[in-house]
């Protein structure tokens, strides 16, 4: 959302017309010199990655490189789609991301509305700082927190179960509960940041609307229901659509830090990104990894494109491009 109108707001061209790139460079040599490092960096780490996508159709070998590796057609894709993992990782990625988006949005919109109703500035400041703090903590630290909660021997959860004379659970060997655990951690980590955004949208609502409603006898609940909520909805819709565009991408940092290569938990928490990582770094098959990555990028791009189109059509200001 932040980068939305970057490209649109500027005037499309100078009144004098554009002229060629070379002319522009000759006219502004120093400006082009200033932008050169960023351009080179983007060429290397952005554009140079594109040709390498063909290795999805090869048996890529680091020594022979992209030009001399053997072509294998769709074999790498076949391998992936015929394996049981394809359905699992794709479904897990979409399912977990959907749950993340849903719960983070519900929590952050509700909290933003509630915070907006509080007049005590000091209280708002303290609580908002507390909400935001987890955002600055890496997933590795978060995984330590999960460990203190769910460790078999010393974890708080098992101790609490023990208090009610329930047998301790070996959490790190039980796949099922990890969906709610991960959703909880996501809410913990991401809500604060969304609250900041939604609160900004709410604060921006015209105050006279509330004044008018009060005169008509609306209480605070009415005001929330009939003014705040409808007016914050466009922001909710935009942010949700933009997140749906990224639904094919699992948060590698989160999943790897918390789950790592603990295969027992894969049925519920293995996502495309961790699968690709393992194919690349653990089984050392770049072509195999690239095939899955290409599958992900293709669907991902279609989703980004479609959701952006919807955003553009319905809310002209929120579009990404």
């Amino acid at each position: 959302m932040e980068m939305k109108t970057n490209l649109k707001k500027l005037p499309n061209s100078k009144s004098g017309g554009k002229g060629s790139f070379i002319k522009d460079i000759i006219r502004n040599p120093l400006s082009y010199l200033l932008i050169l490092p960023a351009v080179i960096y983007t060429l290397i780490f952005g554009y140079m990655t594109l040709p390498y996508m063909v290795i999805a159709f090869q048996k890529f070998n680091f020594r022979t490189g992209i030009f001399n590796s053997a072509w294998v057609g769709f074999k790498n894709f076949e391998f992936f789609f015929k394996s049981a993992s394809a359905a699992t990782v794709t479904w897990n990625t979409v399912r977990l991301n959907t749950l993340f988006i849903f719960f983070v949005t519900v929590f952050s919109v509700s909290l933003a509305i509630l915070l907006n109703e509080i007049k005590n500035k000091w209280f708002v400041k303290i609580t908002q700082s507390t909400f935001l703090f987890p955002h600055f903590i890496s997933w590795v630290i978060a995984s330590y927190i999960i460990y203190t909660l769910f460790s078999y021997n010393y974890g708080i959860v098992n101790r609490i179960l023990g208090f009610f004379s329930i047998e301790p659970i070996s959490w790190y060997m039980t796949p099922k509960p990890w969906t709610p655990i991960l959703v909880g951690m996501r809410v913990w980590q991401a809500t604060g940041m969304s609250v900041v955004i939604y609160l900004a949208a709410i604060v921006g609502i015209d105050g006279s609307l509330y004044e008018a409603a009060k005169i008509d006898g609306a209480n605070r609940w009415h005001q929330i229901k009939h003014i705040t909520l409808p007016l914050v909805m466009p922001t909710v819709a935009i942010l949700t659509l933009l997140s749906i565009g990224k639904i094919m991408y699992g948060d590698f940092g989160m999943f790897w830090a918390i789950i790592g290569d603990n295969g027992i938990l894969y049925p519920t928490v293995d996502v495309i990104d961790t699968y690709v990582f393992r194919a690349l770094r653990l089984s050392g098959d770049p072509s195999q990894a690239m095939a899955v990555g290409l599958f992900q990028a293709t669907i991902g791009f279609i989703l980004v494109y479609t959701t952006n189109k919807i955003v553009k059509k319905s809310f002209s200001e929120g579009a990404l491009f």
């Binding site: 140079m48 390498y52 690709v276 690239m290 980004v304």
Partner: peptide, 12 residues
């Protein structure tokens, strides 16, 4: 919005 992902990145 569009790049080759981690595999080409790693190779580079």
């Amino acid at each position: 919005v569009f790049n080759g992902g981690i595999v080409p990145w790693y190779i580079i």
